[in-house]
Amino acid sequence: MTDEDWPLLRKRVFVSRRSHEQGLRPGYVYREHPDDDRDSGWRALVGDETDREVDDPTNVLLQDLGFLLGRWPELRPVLETDPLNGSWAWDQRTGRYSRLPAE
């Protein structure tokens, strides 16, 4: 599949402001039901955010999914799964994201 054939690249992802501004790899990535047609449903967080931090809109950015992949190309296999729900965590030992068990 080429990038031109991947409609997800035209969508947006919610990203932790700290991840973006400090260049921190998203340590926790999950997908939920999209908010609207432009939303991919993907969320990329550092992984240590509190609920209060995430609930504050000033701490979260809405970015093009392609921009996130440009910074962190190792996310592509996760994003290509395109599940309705699911979560992944960065595994420093293996150098890739691992799917977390359903809660």
Rank of each mutant, 00 (worst) to 15 (best):
M1S: 13
M1C: 11
T2S: 12
E4C: 02
D5G: 08
D5F: 13
L8P: 03
L8S: 01
L9V: 00
L9E: 01
L9T: 00
K11F: 03
K11T: 05
R12D: 01
R12C: 04
V13L: 08
F14A: 07
V15P: 00
S16P: 01
R18I: 05
R18W: 05
S19A: 14
E21H: 09
Q22A: 14
G23D: 12
L24G: 02
G27D: 05
G27E: 01
Y28M: 07
V29H: 01
E32S: 09
H33L: 11
D36N: 15
D36S: 09
D37C: 08
R38S: 15
R38W: 13
D39K: 05
D39C: 06
G41P: 03
R43N: 13
R43D: 01
R43K: 15
L45M: 14
V46I: 14
V46Q: 06
V46L: 11
V46F: 06
G47C: 09
G47T: 06
D48G: 11
E53Y: 15
E53Q: 11
V54A: 07
D55E: 13
D56V: 05
P57N: 05
P57Y: 00
P57M: 03
P57H: 04
P57C: 06
T58F: 10
N59R: 07
L61V: 04
L62M: 12
D64N: 11
G66D: 08
F67L: 15
L69D: 03
G70T: 08
R71V: 05
W72T: 10
P73L: 10
P73Q: 11
L75Q: 01
R76G: 07
R76Q: 12
L79A: 00
T81F: 09
T81H: 11
T81A: 15
D82Q: 11
D82V: 04
N85D: 12
G86R: 01
A89T: 09
A89S: 12
W90T: 00
D91E: 13
Q92K: 15
Q92H: 12
Q92R: 14
R93A: 15
Y97F: 15
R99W: 14
P101T: 00
P101N: 02
A102D: 11
E103F: 10
